[in-house]
Amino acid sequence: MTGRLGIAFAALLAAMICGSPARPQDASTLKKDMVGQWELSTTERSKTCVVTLRGDSTAQGMRLELEPGCAAALPFTKDIAAWSVKGLDIVRLQDAAGQPVIDFTEVESGIFEGLRTGEGIYILQNLAAARSLAKSMDQMIGDWSMVRGNGRPICGLTLTNTETTPDNFAVFLKPRCDPAVTAFAPTAWRLERGELLLMSASGEVWRFEADDNAQWRRVPDSVDPLIMLRQ
């Protein structure tokens, strides 16, 4: 990808995929906003399911449709019969008796999180945004440079599309990297909820967010920031 396309992509990802803080709203507005197609997934998107939330009511609640592969990907979805909004901000996927299968709350604009005890956290997000993120991961592949806040390069690295584990891809450092990066020794990368994650074999994670200058800046920020730029 050229430098101009790289800048355009990072700006788009920052503006559209990172999202903005969840907006306060009432139950009727939330119900209206939820009508449409959504992706239900594990946090790393290794297992996904398309859920279509309808605006009409049934005896069980608001009508929904699950794609045929949902039960195989996420077994708990076989119990979902309808959806509803509880309180001001809870989106509930419920069984035929109206009991919750999983409750979601909005954590960013268009991104909801829900917890199933003993299983972990699941994500519900707009289907178009989820598919845009998957496409964006492909566009991240290539050579990058790590620089300090003063612009001094400290390492080159290559993000690949070689899958190491589900939804994680191989990353390779180039020679003569700064000792801090060499000691970290990232072996895998992925995009997660608008962040670029670099992960080491020991489980250490460095997180980067796209900033206003179409760069990826390590978070939390510091007085001597670490920035990733397209080469």
Rank of each mutant, 00 (worst) to 15 (best):
70 C>I: 08
160 T>V: 03
183 A>L: 03
45 R>I: 02
194 G>N: 13
142 G>V: 03
231 Q>N: 05
90 I>M: 08
201 A>K: 12
29 T>A: 09
84 S>F: 06
169 F>N: 09
100 P>M: 04
123 I>N: 01
39 E>G: 09
137 M>F: 06
11 A>T: 15
164 T>G: 10
104 F>K: 10
84 S>M: 08
42 T>F: 07
85 V>A: 11
225 P>T: 01
169 F>Y: 15
155 C>K: 02
32 K>H: 08
214 A>K: 02
194 G>R: 08
35 V>C: 13
181 V>R: 00
143 D>Y: 05
24 P>Y: 13
187 T>D: 03
191 L>Q: 12
142 G>S: 10
48 T>N: 15
135 K>V: 07
84 S>H: 05
136 S>R: 11
118 G>Q: 15
118 G>H: 02
11 A>E: 14
83 W>G: 13
120 G>W: 09
188 A>S: 12
49 C>R: 02
43 T>H: 03
202 S>Q: 12
203 G>A: 11
49 C>Q: 07
224 D>W: 12
62 M>A: 07
31 K>M: 15
56 D>L: 12
98 G>F: 11
107 V>R: 11
86 K>Y: 14
20 S>C: 07
86 K>P: 08
78 K>Y: 05
54 R>D: 11
111 I>H: 09
52 T>C: 15
23 R>D: 11
108 E>I: 01
218 R>A: 13
160 T>P: 05
89 D>S: 13
46 S>G: 03
166 P>W: 03
110 G>P: 09
31 K>D: 03
206 W>T: 01
231 Q>W: 00
184 F>P: 02
127 L>K: 10
184 F>G: 04
52 T>H: 12
211 D>N: 14
133 L>W: 03
92 R>N: 10
145 S>R: 15
36 G>Y: 07
172 F>I: 05
164 T>N: 06
65 E>L: 04
144 W>G: 09
229 L>K: 14
1 M>I: 07
68 P>F: 15
9 F>K: 13
23 R>S: 11
157 L>Q: 10
40 L>D: 12
40 L>E: 11
148 R>F: 03
119 E>P: 02
12 L>K: 02
215 Q>Y: 05
204 E>G: 02
46 S>A: 05
142 G>F: 07
94 Q>I: 07
32 K>W: 01
58 T>E: 15
62 M>Y: 13
124 L>Q: 04
64 L>P: 05
128 A>V: 10
206 W>P: 09
209 E>A: 15
15 A>Y: 09
59 A>F: 08
26 D>I: 12
143 D>R: 15
160 T>H: 01
61 G>I: 04
167 D>H: 04
118 G>C: 12
92 R>C: 07
125 Q>F: 00
175 P>L: 00
26 D>M: 08
111 I>E: 02
68 P>E: 12
173 L>V: 01
125 Q>S: 12
197 L>E: 15
210 A>G: 12
41 S>T: 04
138 D>R: 14
213 N>G: 10
93 L>T: 01
152 R>V: 14
31 K>G: 06
77 T>Y: 01
196 L>F: 04
174 K>Y: 06
190 R>C: 12
153 P>R: 15
195 E>P: 01
20 S>F: 13
160 T>R: 06
94 Q>W: 13
110 G>W: 07
21 P>D: 04
